[in-house]
Simulated assay, not measured.
Amino acid sequence: MNRIQSQQLKMINLVQVYLETIAMDIWNEVPRFMDYQNELVSIHEKLQVLHQVQTQNIKGFTVNKANAREALCDFAVMISEKIMAYAVNTNNEALYINYRYSKSLLVRMNELKFDISCQIIFDKAIELYNELDDYGVDSMLMDQFESLRTEFTAVLGSTKNERKKIKLVTHEINRLFKKAIQLLFKMDVLVRTIEKNHPEIVKGYFENRAFDRPSYRHYSIRILIKDEDNLPLEGAAVSCNALEFKRKSLKKGEIRLKNIPEGNYVFTVSKKSYLSKKITVLVNSSERTEVKVVLFRL
């Protein structure tokens, strides 16, 4: 639910509360007004439930995926280091080069490549199981490695399902808001029919019915871009299709964006000789959003 929809939801609630303060006999005088009001109440309740589901799902699957990936990444690096140690002691240069997986390397990979790399490390550890015994690789360690891989794969599957669910929920929210606005338009027309006999009631209705679009902060997003040595990157390109925005970072590796409406935005950050990165930035209504982006050299 975006910021405008949140404001609309508050307005619908205010209208409902106001209508309940007026004697029902007055509304019964207006043909079908109570039917529209009851339908609006039902839509309002559904929107509240869907908003809660939408919010919980977005936060939940993002955290689960990040936690599962970090745990697997740390374990894969540990096994990789044991393979590298074995390679050094056996003068196997090819093995050392092929299995030199650092955490920074794994972190930069997309989900598919990361999953494949962990599989490669696992398979090599199984192949060298007896040789790696002196390096602390035992059945318990490999069982834990396999368990973490299984958990990450499961989370990836559930993440795809959650994304589909969120899309369906968002679609239903949009549909219900469209229906609510149609109902309110009909109610607006009907309320005016009692204006001559009940001017104060009509005035109160439209005061609660008024919808003010939210104002935006002058300073919405600050993006700070650095390299892997924590040095600011000047001239990094930052773009966002949703905002039709494209700009390069200043000397301090900084970009500031003003007057950005609340919502989720995907930014692409790139620079020659560096790996590009996509980030999702959530802009809230009550605070400025600051994001640090680290680009790694090719």
Rank of each mutant, 00 (worst) to 15 (best):
residue 144 Q to S: 08
residue 173 I to Q: 02
residue 152 F to A: 00
residue 170 T to C: 03
residue 163 R to S: 12
residue 161 N to M: 10
residue 171 H to K: 12
residue 172 E to S: 12
residue 193 T to V: 05
residue 156 L to T: 04
residue 170 T to E: 11
residue 157 G to T: 09
residue 189 V to N: 06
residue 152 F to P: 00
residue 194 I to K: 09
residue 193 T to I: 04
residue 180 A to N: 03
residue 154 A to P: 01
residue 183 L to W: 12
residue 148 L to A: 02
residue 186 K to H: 09
residue 149 R to M: 05
residue 153 T to W: 01
residue 148 L to P: 00
residue 177 F to S: 12
residue 152 F to L: 03
residue 170 T to H: 08
residue 154 A to T: 04
residue 181 I to M: 14
residue 187 M to L: 08
residue 175 R to A: 08
residue 171 H to T: 06
residue 168 L to C: 14
residue 157 G to S: 07
residue 143 D to W: 11
residue 165 K to S: 06
residue 154 A to S: 10
residue 151 E to V: 07
residue 161 N to T: 10
residue 170 T to A: 09
residue 181 I to R: 13
residue 166 I to D: 07
residue 185 F to L: 15
residue 167 K to T: 12
residue 175 R to G: 03
residue 183 L to F: 15
residue 155 V to H: 01
residue 162 E to R: 05
residue 150 T to W: 07
residue 153 T to C: 06
residue 152 F to E: 01
residue 170 T to K: 09
residue 161 N to Q: 10
residue 188 D to K: 08
residue 162 E to M: 10
residue 166 I to Y: 08
residue 190 L to N: 08
residue 164 K to R: 13
residue 151 E to A: 10
residue 145 F to T: 00
residue 161 N to P: 01
residue 172 E to A: 13
residue 160 K to E: 15
residue 152 F to Q: 01
residue 184 L to W: 00
residue 192 R to T: 04
residue 155 V to T: 03
residue 190 L to P: 05
residue 188 D to E: 08
residue 145 F to E: 02
residue 160 K to V: 10
residue 190 L to F: 11
residue 161 N to C: 06
residue 152 F to W: 03
residue 163 R to D: 11
residue 164 K to L: 15
residue 150 T to Y: 08
residue 160 K to A: 13
residue 160 K to F: 08
residue 177 F to Y: 15
residue 175 R to Y: 12
residue 173 I to S: 01
